[in-house]
Amino acid sequence: MALFSRRKKSDAQPASDAEVAPEQADLPEQAEDAAAEVSAEPAPDANIPAVNISVQAFRGVGADAGPEVALPTEDAAPAKPADTDRPRTPAPPMPGEQAKPSLPLAAATPPEQKHTVDGLNDNVLLREALAELEEGASNEQLIGVMRQSLQGHLYLRVHGDAREQLNSGKPLAVGVVRDGERSFMLAYSSGKALRDSVDGSEDAASTSAIAQPVTAVYQQVVSGDFAGIILDNSSAPHRAVFPTELLQKALEQGDAEMAIKTQVVAPRDEQTPVRVAEALAKTRSWVAVNDGSNGQPVGIAEVHGPDGTRFLQVFSHPLEVVALGRNDRPMPFQPEQLAKVLSDHPEIAGVIVDIAGPSLAVGRDSLSAVLVLAIDIED
């Protein structure tokens, strides 16, 4: 299971591209349970970076649904943000759109799967979000990184042979950084970020790596004795620190599989809208509710196309709403609530999921799995 070629310690040198075993990719399914317990092994990475999202910035996100809100009328425009320096709601994604806006937004279509080290597929969305961080990153930028991390996988650096540890039932000896009595788990968005953390270290020859789903890694941090997680620690300033309290809140407000987000960011085919609709029919989503501060009626945000076509904005996680930088409040929406709104407003052409990007417009003809819930309610 070694990521780097094995040598005697006396011969250890920084790992090169050629030393990366091409067969090392994703975590075997049978290994996931064995990796649940984490052993904290010291790692030679740098000290805790001063890039730490404020937990206060996350408080209040995902409040209870509260009273029902009115859907904006056909002539009503979505609420404008009070701070004009923050990004506004993008127009509906156009076919073939590939523009790469600044954080916290992203292109409408998901990026192609790529690798910076042979055999290790990068978490491209997370890697690109981290790449745009600079020294003194704002909470808004870090929220943009956090939302893009809620999909795909992370690489864990393991002291010793990860495969042997898994086969023997031992907890993984994952890399950590210690700050006094606090410890932070280390995780990486790409093969390059992982390799950079090992290059030049004394234990390079005895280091291996394993990929795990992001939610599984975050759950390990929450359930373990960790103060938080550091993503791409050796890639300063393109790294981020998320405290355990933030990870716990993010997990609580999303489903275990992050099913909606996973479908939206996956490679697409003609059945993608149907699969997204099926995910919307099975798990809670979120809507953006304006606060009425601009003199408009309180309502759920929607998008109007150039031809006046109306799409309801829905989100896979409350962070997707926060990342837009508007004054909207995320509100949880059960599948039955979404079905009722669409049923009561036939003029709405469909939904746009995660408009901050990657995003997807799902028309009524693909929303059968959701719309049938409204029929069940009426019966």
Rank of each mutant, 00 (worst) to 15 (best):
A2Y: 10
A2T: 05
S5A: 14
Q13Y: 05
P14Q: 03
V20P: 01
P22V: 12
E23L: 13
D26F: 12
E29R: 07
D33Q: 07
D33W: 01
A34N: 04
A40Q: 13
A40F: 06
A43D: 06
P44L: 10
N47M: 11
A57V: 05
R59V: 14
A65P: 06
G66K: 09
P72D: 02
T73C: 13
P78M: 10
A82D: 10
D83G: 11
P92N: 13
S102K: 14
L105Y: 09
T109E: 12
P110D: 03
P111A: 08
V117K: 15
D122P: 08
V124C: 09
L130I: 00
L130C: 10
E135W: 04
N139S: 11
L142F: 10
V145M: 12
R147F: 03
Q151K: 09
L156H: 00
V158K: 01
A162M: 03
S168C: 08
P171C: 14
P171A: 13
V174C: 15
E181Y: 12
R182N: 07
S183A: 15
Y188P: 07
A193Q: 02
S197N: 04
T207R: 08
I210A: 08
Q212M: 13
Q219A: 15
G228C: 01
L231A: 02
L231Y: 03
N233Y: 00
A236Y: 06
H238N: 15
A240K: 03
A240P: 06
V241Q: 11
P243K: 15
E245G: 14
L246H: 06
L247F: 07
Q248I: 03
Q248W: 08
K249E: 04
K249S: 14
D255P: 14
D255I: 11
A259K: 10
T262F: 03
T262C: 09
V264L: 10
A266E: 00
P267R: 11
T272Y: 02
R275W: 00
A281V: 03
V287C: 12
G292D: 05
S293L: 13
G295F: 11
P297H: 05
P297L: 10
V298I: 15
A301S: 15
H304C: 09
D307E: 14
D307G: 10
D307A: 14
G308C: 12
L312R: 07
Q313R: 13
V314K: 08
V314P: 01
P318V: 03
L319S: 04
E320H: 09
E320A: 15
G325D: 01
D328E: 06
M331Q: 05
M331R: 09
F333R: 11
Q334T: 05
P335R: 05
E336P: 05
L338K: 05
A339W: 01
I348S: 07
G350I: 05
V353D: 02
G357D: 00
P358H: 03
S359Y: 00
R364F: 02
V370F: 02
L371H: 04
D376C: 08
E378S: 13
